[in-house]
Design a protein around this nucleic acid. Structure first.
Length: 917
RNA sequence: GUCGCUGUGGCGAAAUGGCAGACGCAUUGGACUUAAAAUCCAAGGACCCUUAACAGGUCGUGUGGGUUCGACUCCCACCAGCGACACCA
């Protein structure tokens, strides 16, 4: 008996779709249609390993959604492309000594072949790669927009640099000063920053690419060194990136992840007067008691705190080792120990700083500051638990109410003064806090705080901030964890910066920069014989021929910027290019952008919850401010697919066993091939070392693309993490066979309609099944609840398998409902059912609520919430009738005999519950 | 350490205040077959009592409390697993 053969059917329909351009998307949505839908997948990095099973998970989900909405009459934009710049390609190129473009193109070809094998309904004419010269021409163009934009905090938006007001005193200093002033305000600017330098990769990395002091890619150690780098002023947009999250249809979890990354906090800045060295007594006697000098100058140390209410408890201060005041305030006696500490801190990687128990270390500077409320001198310390890059790089330490300060104070024997008391605590807890045995970091009631005593923390914060600003020694302040984005890399395989550095007559850069003229874009990568990093921060592009490196323009000489952009750059805006991939006059066609944006559904892995999505939103907002796009946010709805895991086995000692050494018997019991030990099955990430990686191409070859698609959707909810099971794949493949046999006569080699499939009207019961299935599948697909939609279709097939006569109408309905999930099989069935063209645009079946109504329903009868009996009544039975029927039900009446009914709960059409005593 | 997610049969899961375990995998039985595979049909949470059988009862959604006529679902506390962040003052 011939089974349905995907190896023949699937390529046949893939060819059909390609030749007929079935899924070509029009430039603009069809005005006569039911609106537009832009559905986007996170485009893959085309690695040499090819697709893994995680790719088809999200891609199948979006494909089903798109195919469904096409049948519902929407114009659907559903593109695919490749994020192809980046380190792995370059590492591979270095290893094999081939140009990165060559391996990248081979990998893209392989990915495209594999994706097409899965039957996704992309408009392949829109396919792009970030490495296409015509693509990165516009990446460079956006880079120039960033270079040409400054953030106007008064208006709350980015504006052209030409509109930046220049203060008169700067104008007076001449043209160079004006240019410098502009450079200081650009969204893309160069700065001497402490950067994460990774010698092994030969490049600097963004904070986000450094995990525990090691590179995210390759796990190499990272050092902090000062280096002149390109930065993007994402911090200017922190407020808007946070506020606009509200308008997005994203999961609360992802929103929170982004919000936490932006890390907005409201607090106060406080200026502490530094006591001059030497004649302290005299200074104390002569200074004014009415206040301290305002602003950070040589006399004051400015801190940021979120707990100004604890100011009375500030018993010492700490500045970061990199803080500029360190040199100035350190007393001569302590200079050597301070310098030694600063030295050692700078050599420490972030890893070293956070490693181990994180024992707090620090040294005393010898200097003192005055606590503005107690007016008592407090010592100033240096410690690396205070970060130079957050707030002001200095803190007031309140050991009684901050766990880090507490730990530090305990280590160095510093004073601990309690100034907040918990609202409700046991006497023992109160005593422990009072005596400094534990640290109380929560909110409570202020004590020992002068006029502020008795105030609740929130109130005390406000009043203290007010008090400070009245005296000019403090003010309300907002801080963000978000830092500016380090945007340059010292690697070959990335977009060159479209920036030129002006050279003086002697060939030395004079510090003036200019943008490459737009008409000269793109700046292509030069040909380099040797593009290896050499462990020094000088980028590989500096080794290019002079003909690339040096440019004459308007009678001046320039040297090209030799840094390249990070891999994130290309993925920041690819969703825009998909809208008009061929446009040679703009990054995106205005009319088309307005018509298609925003992205209605964006599906991808949660690993991009912070970086890619934040960077993209930032660029989009800049483009919005500058009038190049029409929406504030790019991605209206975001869904994160769950990770697909695999089974792994471990022995009694907990050691993981490689797939090679495992023998599995028919009962599914796994033993070690050599030792015979019975192994425990666990769920783990797929990994090469465990040899439990599932190759999607192999699954397609064995079971077919439709089976792979259907299985990945049937495994569980899209967003859940779930383990792969080959038996499960076999199960859905069986289902597809059952669908095939439901309609096709398998006794002959020809695909002929089964005799039982007849053009007759369905019975009332069959109609109920048909319409219930349409209703459930429609709702489930719209909610991306694909696993339950498939279950409903399985029930449908189980039902009709038992029916001898299978109305054509029922079979056509099933074919259309299943088509988004298993498109190849359904196209073939559609043809067998007598249709001559694709079902991709057939109207989606409509359900009739009338036909869903059952004449009779079974009602559970409960006593005290426990199920006691069931009865069948007519569906339109009134509550009174229902209760009466329940009371007179034989079994129930027997159980109710002699009991007093306190209450009867009657839910029409659902249940009856008697509460008895 | 902080935050988040998850916890339901042998396994993947469904049900989000109203009959727990839909659907699928694996299992078992039956039909078909010389036989096997494939296919079709059927059974199945645990325990108890009774029985030839039908039926009946108790317990059951990580643990302990609570709200409710009624809780897998809502609230509180805890435990376990996974993930993210990790000195952000």
């Amino acid at each position: 008996m011939p089974r349905y053969n995907p190896a023949v059917i699937e390529p046949k329909w893939q060819q059909y779709w390609e030749q007929n351009k079935t899924f070509r998307c029009p430039d603009l949505p069809d005005p006569k249609g039911r609106g537009k839908l832009y559905v986007l997948d996170m485009f893959p990095y085309p690695s040499g390993a090819g697709l893994h099973v995680g790719h088809p998970e999200g891609y199948t989900a979006t494909d089903i959604y798109c195919r469904y909405w096409r049948m519902q009459g929407k114009s659907v934009l559903h593109p695919m492309g490749y994020d192809a710049f980046g380190l792995p390609a370059e590492e591979y190129a270095i290893r094999t000594n081939t140009p990165p473009r060559q391996s990248t193109e081979a990998n893209i070809a392989n990915f495209t072949r594999q994706l097409k094998m899965l039957g996704f309904s992309y408009d392949w004419d829109r396919c792009l790669a970030t490495t296409d010269v015509e693509y990165f021409r516009w990446t460079q163009w956006i880079c120039l927009v960033l270079f040409d934009t400054w953030y106007d905090h008064a208006q709350g938006k980015g504006r052209a640099i030409a509109e930046l007001p220049i203060p008169a005193e700067i104008v007076a200093q001449g043209e160079i000063a004006v240019e410098k002033y502009r450079d200081q305000h650009r969204l893309a600017y160069q700065d001497d920053a402490l950067v994460n330098w990774c010698p092994a990769l030969g490049t600097v990395l963004a904070n986000e690419e450094v995990i525990d002091g090691r590179s995210e890619r390759g796990d190499h150690p990272v050092q902090r060194i000062p280096l002149r780098q390109w930065m993007l002023r994402i911090t200017a947009y922190a407020d808007r990136l946070l506020a606009d999250l509200d308008s997005l249809d994203w999961s609360p979890g992802i929103k929170k992840l982004q919000a936490d990354w932006i890390g907005r906090s409201l607090g106060a800045e406080v200026d502490f007067a530094i006591m001059p060295q030497g004649d302290w007594g005299n200074w104390l006697a002569t200074r004014s008691r009415s206040g301290f000098p305002a602003g950070p100058d040589s006399q004051t140390l400015r801190v940021y705190t979120t707990r100004p209410d604890t100011l009375y408890g500030a018993t010492y201060m700490v500045v970061a080792p990199e803080h500029p005041c360190v040199q100035r305030i350190t007393t001569p006696e302590l200079r050597s120990s301070v310098e030694a500490y600063v030295q050692s801190a700078s050599f420490k990687s972030d890893r070293d700083r956070t490693e181990g128990d994180k024992k707090k270390t620090g040294v005393f500077t010898g200097a003192y500051a005055i606590n503005p409320v107690t007016e008592l001198p407090i010592p100033i310390w240096i410690a690396d638990y205070v970060l130079a890059s957050y707030g002001t790089g200095a803190i007031m330490a309140v050991p009684a109410h901050d766990t880090r300060d507490y730990e530090f104070a305990k280590t160095y024997g510093l004073e601990i003064i309690q100034v907040v008391e918990p609202k409700d605590a046991t006497a023992e807890e109160l005593r422990a806090i009072r005596e400094g045995e534990i640290c109380f970091a929560d909110e409570g009631i202020a004590i020992h705080s002068g006029d502020f005593s008795g105030l609740a923390t929130q109130e005390a914060k406000q009043r203290m901030t007010q008090w400070l600003s009245q005296r000019g020694v403090g003010r309300q302040a907002v801080n963000y964890k978000l830092r500016d984005w380090l945007f340059s890399r010292q690697r070959f395989w990335g977009e060159p910066f479209p920036i030129l550095h002006e050279l003086d007559a002697d060939g030395k850069p004079n510090g003036r920069k200019r943008a490459v003229p737009v008409e000269s874009l793109p700046v292509d990568l030069p040909h380099l014989e040797d593009f290896k990093p050499h462990g020094r921060p000088e980028p590989p592009l500096a080794k290019a021929d002079d003909s690339w490196l040096y440019v004459e323009l308007d009678g001046k000489s320039y040297r090209r910027e030799t840094n390249t952009m990070p891999q994130w750059a290309g993925s920041c805006w690819y969703y825009l290019r998909f809208i008009s991939p061929g446009s040679s006059t703009a990054m995106v066609d205005r009319e088309q952008e307005a018509a298609w944006m925003p992205v209605d559904l964006y599906i991808g892995g949660a690993e991009h919850a912070v970086l890619h999505l934040l960077y993209s939103r930032f660029w989009h907002k800049v483009l919005y401010d500058r009038g190049y796009v029409t929406h504030k946010e790019p991605f209206q709805r975001l869904v994160n697919q769950g990770m697909i895991l695999s089974y792994a086995y471990k022995d009694k000692r907990g050691a993981l066993i490689s797939g090679d050494s495992i023998h599995e018997d028919e009962q599914g019991c796994a033993t070690h091939k050599e030792t015979g030990e019975v192994l425990e099955r666990i769920v783990a990430k797929m990994s090469k070392s465990l040899k439990n990686v599932i190759d999607p191409e192999g699954v397609v070859k064995e079971y077919g693309a439709d089976a792979l698609r259907l299985y990945e959707m049937f495994m569980g909810p899209l967003e859940a993490t779930k383990p792969w099971s080959m038996q499960g794949v076999n199960g859905v493949r069986n289902f597809l066979d059952r669908v095939w046999r439901l309609m096709v006569d398998t006794r002959t080699e020809e695909n002929q309609l089964l005799d039982g499939v007849q053009d007759v009207a369905p019975t009332a019961e069959q109609e109920k099944v048909i319409h219930a299935t349409i209703a459930a599948v429609t709702r489930d697909v719209e909610q991306l609840s694909f696993n339950t939609a498939i279950a409903r279709m399985m029930e449908f097939v189980n039902y009709f398998t038992k029916e001898e006569v299978r109305p054509v109408q029922a079979m056509e309905t099933l074919t259309l409902l299943l088509a988004p999930f298993a498109p190849h099989l359904c196209e073939e069935l559609w043809a067998v059912l007598g249709h001559s063209s694709t079902l991709a645009y057939e109207p989606w079946p409509v359900f009739d609520p009338q036909k869903l109504k059952a004449a009779a329903v079974e009602i559970p009868l409960q006593i005290n919430g426990k199920l006691r009996a069931k009865m069948t009544v007519s569906a339109d039975c009134s509550p009174e009738e229902l209760e009466q029927a329940a009371r007179s039900h034989d079994r129930l009446a027997e159980l109710l005999e002699g009991k007093q009914i306190v209450k009867a709960v009657v839910v029409p059409g659902r249940m009856v519950n008697f509460v008895v005593k």
